[in-house]
């Protein structure tokens, strides 16, 4: 009886390890600006990197209309809630769909030659 109880405990703890591994194994997406500080209106390159694109994935979406201003909560008068940005797509060969109204960029997955470690640079 005591071994049965011990086994339950070990399984309980191990299940958390399995869950953690499962989460870690998901796709990872990172947005990295070229500079961490720029002037108003200055151009900078922002790199969006994705690893392990799943097979069922059809497109990559970058929502540029929801770039949150972290200072907005402190001062709602001086700062805007979302950033107003202008975007240039550097690679004209990539067939993208860009909704200017909501500033949402949709890139079909066929545009990428490989499924892993893709990066999209927006200038």
């Amino acid at each position: 009886m005591e071994n049965k109880g011990l086994f339950k405990k070990i399984f309980f703890i191990f299940s958390f390890i399995l869950i953690g591994l499962n989460v870690y194994s998901q796709s990872v997406s990172i947005a990295t600006p070229q500079k961490d500080s720029i002037l108003f209106g200055e151009s900078t390159v922002v790199s969006f990197a994705i690893n392990q694109i799943p097979a069922e994935c059809k497109a990559v979406i970058i929502d540029l209309g929801k770039i949150q201003n972290l200072l907005y909560e402190q001062d709602t008068i001086m700062f805007e809630k979302y950033a107003d940005v202008m975007v240039d797509i550097p690679d004209p060969d990539i067939a993208v769909y860009y909704d200017e109204g909501v500033k949402k960029l949709t890139i079909p997955i066929q545009a990428f030659s490989a499924k892993d470690n893709q990066a999209i640079n927006l200038a």
Partner: peptide
């Protein structure tokens, strides 16, 4: 960027 402040740029999502 045509706004000023400290911004959190969201990453790319998969669909």
């Amino acid at each position: 960027f045509l706004s000023y402040g400290s911004f959190a740029i969201p990453p790319a999502f998969l669909q």
